[in-house]
């Protein structure tokens, strides 16, 4: 069996999510009409969480079966987790993913602070340089794209993109 299809993280995540949703759903009120208990707000999430809990069980069984079939090929689970973590730390790709996610999260407060034209350009330049582009092409592409977006969304579609300091220049 493919390792991707047998993973321990998937059943753990599914089980944790289901238990959490079941707990949260239990806090929701019941729906009683004329003394009769009817399907209320908790009904559908509960059904889905029970299904996902069963799915977690199936995935766990799948993982255990896979482990049995490859036993001896690998060391213990802890060793493999350590190995993965050290791979992630040293991997250029994993760090790039981290940079993209980090800058994307930071884009929102920075945009609110200095406006989209500047924040978007900085975001574009930073990411393109991280993704191995030359600095001048990073600047040209980012500036052009930000101008196109600002004109199309801001002017044509009247989307209120924060212009920030650029507003005073315009």
């Amino acid at each position: 069996m493919d390792e991707r299809k047998a993973s321990l993280s998937l059943p753990v995540i599914l089980a944790a999510l289901s238990v959490w949703v079941l707990y949260m759903a239990a806090q929701l009120p019941e729906f009683i009409q004329r003394g009769q208990r009817l399907p209320g707000p908790r009904y559908f999430p509960t059904i889905l969480s029970v299904f996902l809990l069963i799915a977690a069980g199936v995935e766990l069984a799948r993982y255990l079966r896979y482990r049995r079939s490859v036993s001896g090929e690998y060391g213990g689970a802890l060793d493999r987790v350590r190995e993965r973590l050290s791979m992630l730390r040293s991997s250029w790709g994993a760090r790039s993913v981290g940079v993209i996610l980090g800058t994307s999260v930071a884009l929102v407060p920075v945009t609110q602070l200095i406006g989209f034209p500047l924040a978007g350009t900085a975001y574009g330049v930073l990411l393109m340089m991280r993704l191995k582009a030359r600095w001048y092409s990073a600047v040209v592409v980012s500036v052009v794209v930000v101008i196109v977006i600002t004109v199309v969304f801001g002017r044509l579609f009247r989307v209120p993109l924060p212009l920030g300091v650029i507003r005073y220049l315009l």
């Binding site: 884009l107 574009g124 191995k132 977006i149 969304f153 579609f157 993109l161």
Partner: peptide, 17 residues
């Protein structure tokens, strides 16, 4: 890499819009 950044910027603004 340029297309990726274009996609990211459009994705952010598209989500906001």
């Amino acid at each position: 890499n340029a297309v990726m950044v274009i996609v990211l910027l459009f994705s952010a603004v598209g989500s906001f819009a």
